[in-house]
Simulated assay, not measured.
Amino acid sequence: MDDRRRVVIVAYENAQILDVACPSGALDVANRYGAAPPYTIELSTPDGRTAGTSAGIGLGPGRRLAAVTGRLDTLVVVGGLGAETAAQDRQLLAQVRRLAGRSRRVASVCTGAYVLAAAGLLDHRRVTTHWGHGSRLAERHPAVAVDPAPLFIRDGNVYTSAGVTSALDLTLSLIEDDHGPTLARAVARELVTYLHRTADQAQISMFLAAPPPGERLVRDLTGYIAGHLADDLSPRALAERAGISTRHLTRLFTAHLGTTPARAVRAARAEAAAHLLRSSGLPVAAVARRCGLGSAETLRTTLLRHYGVAGDALRRMPDMPRARVPAQRQTPRHGRHNDT
């Protein structure tokens, strides 16, 4: 009897190539580092033919969905520009439902959640998807509890993940569940990932949630904050640096970052402190000083507020928990981002 962990990745026309590459690549590396039992990776498409991707590179040919039989360990449905069209394909949905019933666990990457939701596999579950599609998914499927903030969510045996590269975080988590943290970390190192991020870490970092390009003043100030965490970053100091009033500073931050200057500074300091604790051997007091938090006690209370754990506990954890960073107020093409 074959004891391999059989993983079937479902793609379709206009899929996102990274949604396939991240999980398949990570599982391949896990096999090369001694995963036992190893993974077998199969690509399946609705008709068994090559599926085009938005990058212009074809995937496949894969096995026809209807031809996939037997037990599966993991069923993965990818996302991409074609996800909403795929979610209207009744035959594809019927096959996804059938294969889900044969799988130990089911996962979606990014907008692949549209397909799982349309197949009825996400009803009454807490799920996530790409931050720009959370509202749209929730509107289409009111029985689904959509949380667009985390990188990935597990609800029972169903896993949903955020946009694109969060598929790597999800797959590393699956590898850790299957084979333990040592193998997962070895795979992460081989793939040159900065961190194996935990499920509930926010999709958008404080340092990536930049204001629109036209708002140069706010963009410059957020860059200054990130590079001068130990300096005086009070609203008054920031306003003086920008040559504006503190009231106008607050209006700008609220309009373009969805938070006040003081809260933005606290979130930036908390995130930087968390990363230093996870990636360096610096004493807690030194981390606190470097990040502008003053003392180990202030760092402790800050991390408790933002992460729910203290510094020493965070350092011992295999992954970072989710940071409650301020959300960027932006209206993407397919919905509003709300990761608060």
Rank of each mutant, 00 (worst) to 15 (best):
R185W: 11
D147F: 03
L229K: 01
E139K: 13
V109F: 02
S135H: 15
A267W: 08
E42H: 13
G163K: 00
G70L: 10
L257R: 15
D147M: 12
M206I: 15
R236W: 05
D312A: 10
L81K: 05
T69N: 11
S166T: 15
V8W: 05
S166D: 04
Q328D: 08
G70Q: 05
R263T: 13
L233W: 08
P332V: 08
P213F: 06
V96G: 01
R216M: 05
V325D: 10
G58L: 07
V109P: 00
L191E: 08
D47S: 14
H275I: 13
D232T: 09
T198F: 06
G25H: 03
T85M: 09
G60E: 03
E13R: 09
E84N: 03
Y33G: 02
L174H: 03
R136I: 00
T69Y: 08
Q203P: 11
R315A: 11
R247Y: 09
E84D: 12
D200M: 12
L18M: 15
S205A: 08
L299K: 02
R105C: 06
L252N: 11
A310M: 02
R125M: 01
L18A: 14
I153L: 13
D155K: 06
H141W: 13
L314H: 01
H256D: 09
T85A: 14
T128A: 00
L122G: 11
D123Y: 04
V8M: 03
A274P: 06
A274N: 09
Q328G: 15
V76L: 10
G308K: 10
N338P: 03
R241N: 03
G134N: 02
G243H: 05
Q330D: 10
A87N: 01
R97M: 07
A286N: 04
Y114W: 15
G311K: 05
N31Q: 00
R278T: 05
L18N: 09
V325M: 14
R32M: 06
L27K: 09
P326W: 06
D232E: 14
Q201A: 08
A51K: 00
A55L: 11
R136Q: 14
S108Y: 02
P37L: 05
S280G: 04
P37V: 01
V146E: 07
A94Y: 04
H306A: 09
P326G: 10
D232H: 14
Y33V: 07
R125V: 00
D47C: 04
V127D: 01
Y307R: 05
G227K: 12
P283L: 01
V164T: 13
R64Q: 12
L276F: 08
D147K: 04
